[in-house]
């Protein structure tokens, strides 16, 4: 088991090298001159030149790359020129915000999508099946920023049920002492229930927005996979052996249907990290997505590179954990490794 994990981690190294090279080149290929941007509209040519030198942008591309890699190897991800903070600090303080939102959305989507998919598969043609199809269609056809704005408009502006879409916590509340960086968990650890409720209220709308988006692929995959498994020969054997319908449905059918659902789960998780960028913007969520957008607009290289690199790391970890989970669900996977 441990050797498998180690092997997989080693196998991820080429991917990471690729990510480092590509992000470096892509950020350099972006239009706009950071030196001119930071010098401002009134900056003289000498000032721009000086900033360029200070940023190391006067060197040739290979030289810049070597400097970048050398710094990375020392754990230095560079400085954000817009905020004046080291990129690594910015990312580590903002990542929990994004992760809390993403995981909450994923959890909500799974809680709704999987039972819905199972019900739809066991009663094809019923109202549950139609509901499943309806939600799936709505989920894929509504862009997240639109759903987000619509929800904020209805539940905050019109109905006033939700708090203002302004970040993770009401400005009158102070953040709980940092343990995990997840406000919901940290506030519970601190037994600060008003903060827990406050954080939860802020979380609801963006979570629903993101969950709606990933509900569709999850529910559809669960339904399709269950339908396939339910018509398999071994389900007929289980029924012929007189096993209880619950046993047939859960221990036999669902566990077998789980593999494609898990694959989809991994995929939608990465979709979520991507669509976070927009949803964080709509709800003023202080996550790494909104940070990356601001950096991109400012042609601030280091944060953009840092963002892409941390995303790549997340993907690698995510795929690894899904592969490990496969091994638990399906014994055939373990052997192949």
């Amino acid at each position: 088991m441990l050797t498998t994990i180690l092997k997989r981690l080693l196998g991820a190294i080429p991917n990471l090298i690729g990510v480092v090279v590509v992000t470096f080149l892509l950020t350099r290929a972006l239009p706009g001159d950071p030196a001119a941007f930071f010098a401002g509209g009134a900056g003289t040519a000498e000032a721009v030149e000086e900033i360029r030198k200070k940023l190391g942008l006067d060197k040739s591309l290979p030289e810049q790359f070597i400097v970048y890699v050398r710094d990375l190897a020392r754990g230095d991800w560079g400085m954000s020129h817009a905020t004046g903070q080291p990129v690594l600090t910015e990312l580590t303080t903002r990542l929990p915000a994004s992760l809390e939102l993403t995981l909450a959305a994923l959890l909500l989507a799974v809680i709704i999508a999987i039972p819905l998919g199972i019900l739809a598969a066991t009663r094809p043609g019923s109202w549950v099946d139609h509901l499943c199809r309806g939600i799936a269609t709505a989920g894929v056809s509504l862009p997240t920023f639109f759903t987000g704005l619509l929800l904020a408009y209805i539940f905050y502006f019109l109905l006033g049920w939700a708090p203002a879409p302004l970040g993770r916590l009401d400005p009158y509340l102070s953040a709980p002492p940092l343990v995990t960086g997840f406000y919901l968990i940290d506030s519970l650890i601190a037994r600060d229930f008003p903060v827990f409720v406050g954080a939860l209220k802020q979380l609801i709308l963006p979570t629903i927005t993101l969950a709606l988006f990933v509900l569709a692929p999850l529910a559809r995959m669960t339904r399709a996979s269950m339908l396939g498994v339910l018509s398999a020969d071994f389900i007929r054997t289980a029924r012929a052996s007189g096993l209880a319908p619950r046993t047939v449905l859960f221990s036999y059918a669902f566990r077998n249907a789980l593999l494609p659902v898990m694959t989809t789960l991994g995929m939608v998780f990465s979709f979520l990290l991507g669509s976070n960028v927009l949803v964080e913007k709509v709800f003023a969520w202080p996550g790494i997505g909104s940070f990356a957008i601001e950096a991109l607009v400012a042609s601030d290289y280091a944060p953009v590179q840092g963002f892409v690199l941390s995303m790549a790391l997340l993907y690698v970890l995510l795929n690894l954990s899904i592969d490990i989970a496969y091994g638990f669900v399906d014994p055939r996977m373990k052997i192949e490794n």
Partner: peptide, 21 residues
């Protein structure tokens, strides 16, 4: 009675058993 008094076996045994149990 199914599975207790009356039982059945099927063709293609390799796919007629739960593959992950």
């Amino acid at each position: 009675m199914r599975g207790r008094e009356l039982a059945m076996i099927f063709q293609n045994p390799r796919v007629a058993l739960n593959p992950i149990r």
